[in-house]
């Protein structure tokens, strides 16, 4: 299948700093693509270039066959974006926010109302459509943003940390909603996240660190690439079990904290063999499969962490109250 996003040797410098350094990747149509990396790795810069907010220093990228630099307006028509920071107008109602979006994307008048109402039903906010957005919770705002980003029927949807700062329940609701998009609307999803378990829904993942792509593949491939599963085994006599495993199964085992630690490419298939071989000596056995978090840790040397949401929110909160004071006092 032809890729819907192609990025070739993309580089962006900010003065001395190279935020994105020769990045290349492709995203296939109708898939969910995960773009992962620690803070400051170049994720948002890449997204900003793809959605025509920034121009690259060198390299090129296309979306749906349109060059992001030279055919910006065609690219803008075919994408929908949910930025990391909320971009709703909080003074306006939910309906007005979607309506203005409809105008900006020139949704035909005959369809505008119907599409907006459908989207509002879809995210379960129809009843609240005439409430100003400032009265909404974080999760509701996020859902509204996602709804807004798809009412013009984009071919590619960018989601930059869509679940940042949401409670676990809102997060899982939102993902349930997002994961349906490729199938129900034929949308290709390009997402970034700090929550590795959320990246499991991706069909493909690219990991970026210090501006460079350091690994690419499906979640399964990535997990395999750092070695397979790990079996933890407790036996009545660990030393004897170790040599038995070595001789009978050709697997090397190490002892750690009274447990045997065995690496195997397919742990689930290995367990029955171990039990048969060791029979009565087995006290307990557990299987640990590598998570994307392990992949990330191994490749970047850093655990991925959400940005300190509370601080940012606090700052924004104080900005808001300051602004209100200001408006009242001076205007």
């Amino acid at each position: 299948m032809a890729p819907i996003i192609t990025v070739q040797n993309l580089t962006r410098k900010f003065g001395e700093l190279t935020a994105v350094d020769g990045v290349s990747f492709e995203v296939e149509k109708g898939t969910i693509f995960g773009f992962l990396g620690p803070n400051g790795a170049g994720k948002t810069t890449t997204i900003n270039i793809l959605c025509t907010l920034l121009s690259p220093t060198s390299g090129s990228c296309t979306i749906d066959g349109h060059d992001c630099l030279r055919e910006a307006s065609l690219v803008r028509k075919s994408i929908g974006i949910v930025f990391q920071d909320n971009t709703l107008d909080k003074e306006l109602t939910a309906y007005e926010n979607l309506l203005f979006h409809g105008y900006l994307y020139d949704i035909p008048k005959t369809e505008r109302k119907q599409r907006i109402e459908e989207a509002l039903h879809f995210i379960g906010l129809y009843e609240r459509r005439t409430d100003p957005v400032k009265k909404f919770s974080g999760g509701m705002k996020r859902r509204l943003e996602v709804a807004r980003s798809i009412i013009h029927q984009p071919t590619v949807l960018f989601l930059d940390e869509p679940t940042l700062g949401l409670d676990p329940q809102s997060r899982s609701n939102l993902w349930e909603f997002i994961s349906k998009l490729p199938a129900t609307r034929g949308v290709t999803v390009f997402m970034t996240t700090h929550y590795m378990e959320e990246a499991e829904i991706c069909s493909n993942i690219a990991i970026i660190d210090k501006g460079r792509i350091i690994a690419q593949g499906s979640p399964e491939q990535l997990k395999k690439s750092i070695g397979g599963d790990v079996i933890y085994l407790k036996t009545t006599d660990n030393t004897r079990a170790m040599s038995t495993i070595q001789q009978a199964l050709g697997l090397s085992a190490e002892e750690r904290d009274g447990e045997l630690f065995i690496s195997a490419s397919r742990g689930d298939a290995c367990i029955p063999k171990l039990i048969t071989t060791l029979s009565d000596a087995v006290v307990s056995v557990r299987l640990q499969r590598p998570t994307l978090n392990d992949v990330f840790l191994k490749l970047t040397g850093k655990a991925i962490r959400p940005e300190t949401v509370s601080e940012g929110d606090e700052l924004r909160q104080s900005i808001r109250s300051y602004r209100r004071k200001f408006d009242r006092g001076k205007s």
Binding site: R76, N86, L104
Partner: peptide, 17 residues
């Protein structure tokens, strides 16, 4: 304010001059 509170981005990525 629009820059600070994000709405400007919504307009900047829209397919309008």
């Amino acid at each position: 304010w629009d820059k600070e509170f994000g709405f400007m981005k919504e307009m900047l990525v829209a397919p309008v001059p």
